[in-house]
């Protein structure tokens, strides 16, 4: 099975200023052969929607570690879906302030149209997801 490289847009959530995770994730994604646009931290919903419209990425990766991730992620996903964007959206990092995943909050995100929630910050799981996505893309393109 051939893997295709994806155009990925990477963004920190609206209130989150942490960037080391973004620097890391960019390298991580690029090393897997994908092209990455890094919007940086504190990306407000309107900017995110605009950038998705302009760049037409094949995947949006939202990252958040400041503890507001569930709430900010929900706002972002809703804004994107409301604007009619159907691209796959995933979110990960340290999404709450309690140091553990919150199943109710994660369910809200999935319900709002988020494709995957890596609220344990597991980048291996993200890697595996990318592989399936890239494989599907290959088939779709074939």
């Amino acid at each position: 099975m051939r893997r295709r490289s994806l155009d990925i847009l990477l963004a920190g959530t609206a209130s989150d200023s942490h960037t080391w995770n973004l620097v890391y994730l960019q390298l991580f994604l690029e090393e897997r052969g994908h092209r990455v646009g890094n919007l940086g931290p504190c990306v407000p919903d309107p900017l995110l929607v605009r950038e998705c419209a302009a760049r037409r990425p094949q995947l949006l990766v939202l990252a958040s570690v400041n503890g507001h991730g569930y709430r900010d992620g929900l706002g972002a996903v809703r804004a994107l879906r409301r604007a009619g964007h159907t691209l796959p959206v995933v979110i990960g990092g340290k999404l709450g302030t309690a140091g553990e995943a919150d199943p109710a909050q994660r369910a809200l995100l999935l319900e709002a149209g988020c494709d995957r929630v890596f609220d344990d910050g597991d980048t291996h799981a993200l890697g595996a997801y990318l592989d399936t996505l890239a494989a599907v893309e290959t088939r779709a393109a074939a």
Binding site: A14, S15, D16, S17, N66, G67, H68
Partner: peptide, 8 residues
């Protein structure tokens, strides 16, 4: 908190 920090 972060919302107040970013002026939201």
């Amino acid at each position: 908190d972060s919302y107040t920090r970013v002026g939201d």
